[in-house]
């Protein structure tokens, strides 16, 4: 109940942020651009629209998650609205979770808007709707939930700019770390292999949420992979939120 009140207020605050609309604008521009690109190329135009469209939604969604996630808690501390809020009978973790769910709600709405536009553009092109794309979009949403948690975690102890850089690094590493997996599988046993393996275990692998290729090329996705990605996303998010609460609980607000 208290978490819900804070979440709704966070949502109300977030949807007034101009940065959000700037990113939304760029996302829509990219979607339109994908159509233009498709018209100019030979080959499978529908694939290009799908590919560029999903990539744009994923990228701009992540940027929204990072900028909102790192900004909103900091603002609350910076403007000292947190003083009265935390003096109310709420636990600090309730405040943090309220912020988190408010952000997730905001991202859900933004993702929904982008999806609607994307489907319209896709329909104009293919004259049909490919519902299987909702699977890819669902996993993009899971990824955004994780990135929001990471952004929130960093903003619990550093400034928005630093937190944004850290979160962006998390995003990039997360999309490149699968290389490590390939690497350690090819390496001969030894110290190097163990290191690569340990690194891979702890570094995020955001490619687990990437089903663009499968959707674009109509490849079958085994259900156990979908199941694994869901569990991976939820447990990673819960873990990061838990760390954020640990840091936030002991923090001085000065």
């Amino acid at each position: 109940m208290k978490i819900k009140a804070i979440a709704l207020n966070t949502f109300r605050e977030a949807i007034r942020d101009r940065v959000l609309y700037l990113l939304l604008f760029f996302a829509l521009a990219s979607l339109l651009f994908s159509r233009l690109l498709a018209l100019l190329t030979v080959g499978d135009r529908v694939k290009i629209v799908t590919d560029v469209g999903l990539a744009a939604i994923s990228l701009f969604g992540a940027l929204m998650a990072i900028l909102m996630g790192t900004g909103l808690v900091f603002k609350e501390i910076d403007k000292k609205t947190i003083y009265t809020l935390l003096s109310k009978p709420i636990h600090r973790h309730q405040f943090l979770l309220g912020k988190y769910f408010g952000l997730v709600l905001t991202l859900f709405v933004m993702l929904f808007l982008m999806t609607v536009i994307f489907f319209v553009i896709y329909f104009l092109h293919a004259l049909k709707i490919e519902w299987s794309m909702l699977i890819a979009l669902f996993y993009i949403f899971l990824e955004l939930c994780l990135i929001t948690a990471v952004a929130l975690f960093f903003s619990c102890f550093s400034t928005p700019i630093l937190s944004s850089i850290f979160s962006l690094a998390f995003y990039l590493i997360g999309h490149l770390s699968w290389g490590l997996e390939t690497l350690f599988k090819k390496m001969s046993p030894g110290i190097g292999k163990v290191t690569a393996r340990i690194l891979y275990t702890f570094l995020p692998d955001l490619e687990n949420f990437n089903f663009k290729t499968e959707i674009v090329h109509h490849l079958p996705i085994p259900p156990q992979i979908l199941f694994f990605s869901t569990i991976y996303g939820i447990s990673y998010t819960v873990f990061v939120l838990f760390l954020a609460v640990l840091v936030f609980r002991k923090r001085d607000f000065i």
Partner: peptide, 28 residues
């Protein structure tokens, strides 16, 4: 307990009654 901080500042995008309604949800 009720608390009023030094130089208070509140969510500037809320109206007075929206603000009080929000805070009232944090109590039983």
């Amino acid at each position: 307990v009720g608390f009023l901080p030094e130089n208070p500042y509140f969510y500037d995008y809320l109206t007075a009654s929206e603000f009080l309604r929000f805070y009232s949800q944090l109590f039983v």
